[in-house]
């Protein structure tokens, strides 16, 4: 009984962390068809922003939930204005440019923070379930991921800004004709995506030792999750995160964590081979 509860929590946690890791990339890719390969570094910077802020005496939750997303969002804004703005519609070029950006951020972080591991302790204590110890922070991550998905859905479905954003993504010329500036909307969307990346990096920072190259661990997973999700933003994100989280945890518990990681990757290959346009090209069509 206890073990099944532990496994359930671990599964949910795996899915939740995939959702968190991929959300920023999903917004930017799903809305603007831009693949931001510097996404992992945005997360890394979110982590550093949190740790620095906590070091300066800020409350850890304020640092994670407010300061880190704001700082990374602003960095994203600068990046969008300077680089990505010039490359809309050129998918491969944006990938290469953002890859270059990711290398630059790694270099900058190495110069500023040094090539050493830093970290903060998790702010929520663990508790025991029968014979097993569960990390209380895992629940926090699960809750944040659920709230994030609900907030995204509410934003895009329920608000006027979301409606304008979706309209612009479908027909930017029509949106422009109706008096909305696509340029500004893209800018705002990229800001939101970057802020989400910063948030994810901040929330995961207490769980991992942070080094300037930390981003590399996230980008591949996020990239795979978003691409496998397919055209629908939220449905794709949730469905592919669930699939991959489930597969990797099953193999992690059955064999070993390394096999779990490999199983996730193999699942991605099989999934893309079977559904080359992603999960939501076949299921949940037309959903958001």
């Amino acid at each position: 009984m206890d073990i099944s509860f532990v496994i359930l929590v671990e599964m949910l946690y795996a899915v939740a962390s995939l959702v968190l890791i991929s959300a920023g990339l999903a917004v930017v890719f799903g809305m603007m068809k831009v693949i931001n390969l510097a996404h992992g570094e945005f997360m890394m910077m979110g982590g550093y922003a949190t740790i620095t802020a906590v070091g300066l005496g800020v409350n850890v939750f304020v640092a994670m939930l407010v300061i880190a997303p704001l700082i990374v969002g602003l960095i994203g804004l600068v990046v969008e204005r300077l680089v990505i703005r010039h490359l809309y519609g050129r998918l491969v070029d944006t990938m290469l440019a953002t890859w270059g950006l990711s290398l630059m951020f790694i270099g900058l972080a190495t110069m500023i923070f040094g090539n050493t591991t830093t970290g903060i302790s998790t702010p929520i204590a663990g508790f025991a379930v029968g014979d097993y110890q569960i990390n209380g922070y895992n629940f926090f991550i699960i809750v944040v991921a659920i709230l994030l998905v609900i907030a995204l859905y509410a934003l895009f479905r329920g608000t006027r800004a979301g409606l304008i954003a979706r309209g612009t993504m479908q027909r930017s010329d029509m949106a422009a004709a109706l008096g909305y500036s696509p340029d500004r909307i893209y800018m705002a969307t990229f800001f939101c995506g970057s802020a989400l990346s910063g948030l994810a990096g901040a929330i995961l920072a207490p769980l991992v030792g942070l080094v300037p190259t930390s981003g590399g661990a996230y980008i591949a997973k996020a990239f795979i999750t978003v691409i496998a999700g397919g055209p629908s933003l939220i449905a794709g994100l949730v469905s592919s995160a669930t699939t991959f989280g489930f597969v990797s945890q099953v193999f992690t518990f059955a064999i070993s964590p390394v096999i779990g990681e490999v199983a996730l990757l193999i699942a991605a290959v099989i999934l893309l081979r079977a559904m080359p346009q992603g999960i939501t090209s076949r299921f949940f069509r037309g959903k958001l």
Binding site: A97, G100, L101, L103
Partner: peptide
């Protein structure tokens, strides 16, 4: 100057 920084800069500049 960090090596990675320069390589990244080179890539961005060339793409742009």
């Amino acid at each position: 100057i960090d090596n990675t920084l320069i390589m990244g800069l080179v890539l961005v500049i060339f793409v742009l």
